[in-house]
Design a binder for these strands. Structure first.
Lengths: 268, 268
DNA sequence: GATTTTTTTCCACATAGTGAAAAGCGATTT
DNA sequence: AAATCGCTTTTCACTATGTGGAAAAAAATC
């Protein structure tokens, strides 16, 4: 394999005082509603004098806040204001793509990214399997929620009312023999998806096609997109669902983090 | 006036490399969707080598992002993730209080902070005038929107539909002789408020009481609270409205910024 | 009001940041 | 294909700058 040369392959930590300061900011972010100098110093391992000097510099620039009444330190306005620029620039698809690629490489199956649009899911990005036989979904393609992996994953985290509103409006049309059309069966599928963290589609949308899907969340723990892996029945036996499910979940989680989101499951 | 001793009265910038790095972050935040090293270096005034070293350190810690395809730098996830901790900890009332105090000192009049709750405004904080004759409003007090300064300021920035929904529901009850009850008059009042940035209440809620109010916004440019200044007719002649209005506006703007918000008027 | 704990300042020392210059790296031109 | 240009990245010698122990100053506790 040829070495792929990427610019800025700088390796080692460079400006140590800066690295230290950034560590302090992170500690402040984890400290709920303010930490004393002692606490910050303790958690960082830096001596109080160094900690104090860095914190007060951060404070001068409003990246940290100091409450003179409680002598407590917390994250400052400017960190927030500047962090918001990230939201303006971030791009889910670009963020997701390398992770989707990696997932395709490890599993060999096609990986899709879809967003919910009203009562359907719309594919917005895809990394195709290298296998001869492979699932295809042109970006832009719309699929019903009740018979797709991503759709079921999205519905699973919604409230009973929201689900009902969508499902009664669209109906749970039978697309294949295995499409779930019974309300009780569907409810069971949602419960499974919530328990496992991933939803499955067992030939419910296309004969011979199986699919495992999980969700990507924004900073408010709201789902922004679904990530799915799909392949032929022959390569995805029942016994592989769990393994693939975990992979899809961890990939979705990684995308969530890089997108600046928070999963509702991982409480931290 | 006695010197008030506040802890952490550290004066001069301390860790210069950190200060520089924070400046770079700010430049990245203002650069829409990515800046080249040259641009960052130019805007900061730091030599390219220094700029590069700081940026790559920020990047290692994910406070900055480097797009290897366009060789462009932008704000990183971690800045966003950590900035969100500010939202968790921030407190509008605590943030506002010192500014309210200052406004009271310069004007001599009572200053109130109110939030909209459904179709009424609720006072949540107050800094009382030192004058013998002064406006009082116990925190927790509820006032109608159509006949209070804060209420009119809040309504002014809402859409015609939202306003109509509220005003038809509550009605524009006559509270004093000067209460505006005519729809056209009210519309004119909203237009004035939008033009000036502040709404006025000319004895519309209580006889002899005048009031000037402006809004405080969150990061999405949505109003979160109203700030008002009220005093007796005798001390607030027509000629003083503009001066006081400007003061209320600038105070509200200052609170908005310290709260991490953005005014819709000041586009930057 | 004395004692302990925590915060803040000080300062001598050498580590760690600085920036000019050189080397890389692509893109464009000749 | 070689040369040129513009920008990015690395290097390196110098010393400015960050470091952390220790002392001083405030708070908190007794």
């Amino acid at each position: 394999m040829p070495e792929i040369k990427k610019p800025n392959s700088t390796n080692k930590g460079q400006v140590q005082s800066l690295v230290k300061a950034l560590q302090l900011l992170e500690i402040l972010a984890n400290g709920n509603g303010g930490l004393s100098l002692k606490e910050v110093s303790g958690q960082s391992g830096f001596p109080p004098s160094t900690t104090h000097r860095l914190l007060s510099t951060l404070q001068q620039e409003k990246f940290a806040r100091f409450d003179a009444d409680n002598l407590s330190w917390s994250v400052g306005v400017k960190t927030f204001a500047i962090g918001n620029a990230f939201v303006r620039d971030r791009d889910l698809i670009q963020t997701a793509r390398p992770h989707m690629k990696a997932l395709m490489e490890t599993t060999g199956e096609t990986v899709n990214l879809a967003v919910q649009s009203g009562d359907v899911a719309v594919y917005v990005a895809q990394v195709e399997s290298r296998q001869m036989m492979r699932a295809m979904a042109a970006p832009g393609m719309r699929v019903p929620l009740h018979c797709s992996g991503v759709g079921k994953a999205m519905l699973a985290v919604q409230s009973e009312q929201e689900r009902a509103a969508i499902l009664t409006k669209t109906g749970m049309r039978r697309v294949t023999e295995k499409t779930i059309t019974d309300v009780a069966d569907m409810r069971r599928a949602f419960a499974d998806a919530l328990r496992d963290g991933y939803a499955i589609d067992d030939e419910e949308h296309a004969v011979g096609l199986r699919c495992v899907a999980s969700l990507i969340y924004n900073e408010n723990r709201e789902p922004v997109a679904g990530l799915s892996l799909s392949g032929p029945l022959a390569r995805i036996p029942d016994t592989k669902f769990q393994e693939l499910g975990k992979l899809v979940c961890s990939t979705a989680e990684r995308i969530t983090l890089e997108y600046g989101g928070n999963s509702p499951v991982t409480m931290n």
